[in-house]
Design a protein around this nucleic acid. Structure first.
Length: 674
DNA sequence: GTGACTCATGAGTCTTTGTGATAG
DNA sequence: ACTATCACTTTGACTCATGAGTCA
């Protein structure tokens, strides 16, 4: 025997000249040593994104989003405390609260005058501006935890600990949080989130419907982004660990991060901005109020610090609403793409999640707001790059059309990008082959020609053969595609005097229930075709789909179609046949059971006779036989039982000591078995 | 820094009606 | 003689989305 040792050498350029190195000096004498020089170093193949990676990133994104939602819902809940509301109201200067009441009364008195006023002259916006000025003069917004100048956007778990979310006694935590908010009112410097929450409480006390609005910024659902965050976190953890090990006692300084790390952290953890929305008491629309910058009614400026994919408004009660569209300048082209794509059924997970917090009985204000958000979405400005047009819900470019799509009609052209015409998305139509339409219960109208031809796929042996033949003859086999407007509901030829219309294969297409011919009835029962054949009734096997096996397309047959007048006859015969079949099977089982019991009884009587005749001698013999048998099969059943009754005992061994008891048990067992 | 483009990869979609041997 | 079942070549070619890299 020879031992072969493979010794790898590093690349010459990397590790200098090749040098043999003995791996194990204790190798046997007859060793063959094979040396590879300049062995190419195989580059590790970059692993692509797997389904698991995507699902994990999506789950993390959703979980993170839900954590933020729960966190802000919890904090928003505290401003409904009467103590917090009363304390915040006590701060308002009398002239501000009075001016609101006066202006409101005046505007309600003179509704016509109100309509004539320009937006700049809006009394409510003016009043809000005064309120914001006063508030900003009263409180100074501070940076919390050195994280941002917007709000304390620490991770939910850290923030939860800070605000008492993890208290075992929730009431105690709530009390502490309320006390903390009350303390904020006594101070001049507060965090922006606290300031906004208190401002919301104050306006509500003045009788103005106000929402607390926050831009939730969860981690990205993109796999690449998630991997970057994980890598950055690992690096940070390792760095923290090494620092901790080296200088345990030194006060920690802010770590200097490199450029890439900074970029990652910024992208992964955008600041969570907080502001409020105030309902205009006479106009009925929502006015955005940003305390941080003193902005009133300037929703477009909220996006200046980056896109806002999840702008969530917390209203009185438990109502929560997604109002992102109000603040997105390019909702479909940019902002919406920061959310995971919708499911196959077109369901939006986030909107479904918020549905439980929606107003059950929408008011006029809610209906108006929905209409306004939709109109804002539809009037979105056109994208400026080619890639933004891809899968855009409003616009389309011809280059992004899919194989089974077409532009119809090719007008109107609503613009150009790099010389390419831009069409409304409504011009993009889905196409199918005639067979695919038939599967949906539609047929091509007479005289319609395919609007597009695509290279057909050769799946079955037959189609593959046809494709090869076509290639040899110098042309390509194409499939014609048709649009919905070229189709009509499938009209099956009717059943005439009991004759079922059949296709070229001798059966009937029944991909949809509507494809049933008039005068026909579908009987999906298994084995019913045989009955119809015996009765000499005309029928056709119903093809409900196709199965693909071993490069063959196999039609899936589900029962038959017969004339309606024959339905009862066929069904009665089928029921009679099924009954007879059941009885036959029962009789067969009964016979088999009786046969096995007969064998058992016969065996027992032989055993009894031998016992009486030879006494203990037979026991010794059987024990000896069983011992040898054990080695053969090694099963756990009782050796004595097996030697007498074989298979029967293995499944149902009767326990008995004398023959009279045994016969009683057998009689009982027979009754049960039958 | 941004967008267009190319390439690699993995997941999902589309395809769309046998035949001969053998056992019962 | 007729009927049911099974194995064959134990789908696979293609589209699309996504991410990485390069270039202008």
């Amino acid at each position: 025997m020879y031992y072969i040792t493979l010794i790898e050498f590093l690349d010459d350029t990397a590790s200098g000249p090749s040098e043999s190195t003995t791996v194990d000096t204790r190798l046997p004498q007859d060793t063959i040593e094979i040396t590879f020089s300049n062995m190419p170093v195989m580059k590790e193949r970059v692993r692509g994104t797997t389904k698991y990676d995507r699902e994990a990133a999506l789950a993390a994104h959703r979980a993170h989003l839900l954590c933020w939602l729960a966190y802000w819902r919890y904090r928003h809940g505290h401003i409904s405390s009467p103590l917090v509301q009363a304390s915040s109201l006590s701060l308002v200067p009398l002239e501000l609260s009075d001016s609101y009441r006066r202006a409101l009364a005046e505007s309600q008195r003179d509704a016509n005058l109100k309509r004539k006023r320009a937006a700049d002259d809006d009394w409510f916006v003016h009043w809000l501006q005064h309120m914001v000025e006063w508030w900003r003069a009263r409180f100074q917004h501070v940076i919390v935890d050195g994280s941002t100048d917007w709000t304390d956007h620490a991770a939910p778990e850290t923030a939860a600990a800070t605000h008492g979310l993890n208290k075992t006694n929730s009431n105690r935590g709530r009390m502490e949080e309320c006390t903390r908010l009350l303390n904020c009112l006594q101070q001049n410097m507060v965090a922006l989130a606290d300031s906004t929450l208190l401002f919301v409480a104050l306006l509500r006390m003045l009788g103005v419907r106000t929402r607390f609005v926050v831009s939730l910024q969860p981690m990205s659902f993109s796999v690449a982004a998630t991997k970057k965050i994980l890598a950055a976190t690992e690096m940070q953890t390792a760095s923290d660990r090494s620092q901790k090990g080296q200088v345990e006692s030194k006060p920690t300084k802010r770590r200097k991060t490199n450029k890439s790390q900074n970029a990652t952290s910024t992208k992964a953890n955008q600041p969570q901005m907080a502001w409020c929305e105030v309902l205009h008491p006479t106009e009925g629309h929502w006015v955005a109020v940003d305390l941080a910058r003193g902005l009133v009614n300037e929703p477009t400026r909220m996006e200046e610090h980056g896109p806002l994919p999840y702008v969530t408004a917390f209203d009185i009660g438990r109502r929560i609403k997604d109002v992102s569209r109000r603040y997105a300048s390019q909702w479909a082209a940019k902002t919406l793409r920061l959310r995971p794509p919708m499911g196959k059924a077109g369901r939006d997970w986030w909107l479904d999640t918020l549905a439980i917090y929606a107003e059950r009985d929408p008011s006029e204000v809610d209906v108006r707001e929905d209409a306004e958000l939709l109109s804002h979405e539809l009037s979105e400005k056109m994208p400026t790059t080619v890639s933004e047009f891809n899968n855009h819900p409003l616009y389309a470019l011809e280059r992004h059309l899919k194989k089974f799509e077409i532009l119809s009609p090719r007008e109107p052209v609503i613009g150009h990008i790099r010389g390419e015409p831009i069409y409304p998305r409504s011009c993009v139509k889905q196409l199918h082959t005639a067979e695919a339409w038939l599967k949906e219960g539609r047929q091509i109208k007479k005289g319609e020609m395919p609007v597009k031809e695509v290279k057909s796929r050769a799946v079955t042996l037959l189609s593959r053969r046809e494709q090869v033949m076509a290639q040899m003859e110098g042309y390509e086999k194409l499939s014609g595609l048709y649009g919905y407007w070229q189709t009509e509901p499938y009209a099956a030829p009717p059943v005439v005097s009991g004759k079922i219309p059949k296709n070229g294969y001798g059966n009937i297409d029944l991909f949809q229930p509507e494809m049933l011919p008039p005068g026909g009835v579908h009987l999906p029962q298994r084995g019913i075709a045989k009955i119809a054949r015996k009765l000499d009734i005309d029928y056709a096997e119903a093809v409900t789909g196709f199965d693909f096996q071993s490069r063959h397309c196999i039609p899936v047959v589900t029962g038959i179609v017969v004339a309606a007048e024959n339905e009862a006859l066929v069904l009665d015969a089928w029921r009679a046949h099924e009954h007879a079949r059941f009885e036959k099977e029962r009789s067969k089982r009964e016979k088999a059971a009786l046969k096995r019991w007969r064998t058992l009884l016969h065996g027992i009587s032989i055993r009894d006779r031998l016992q009486k005749q030879y006494g203990e001698k037979i026991d010794d013999m059987s024990v000896a036989m069983d011992d040898s048998g054990d080695e053969d099969n090694g099963s756990g059943s009782t050796p004595k039982s097996r030697s007498l009754t074989g298979k029967m005992y293995a499944t149902n061994p009767p326990i008995c000591d004398n023959s009279s008891d045994l016969s009683t048990q057998i009689q009982l067992a027979l009754v049960v078995d039958l």
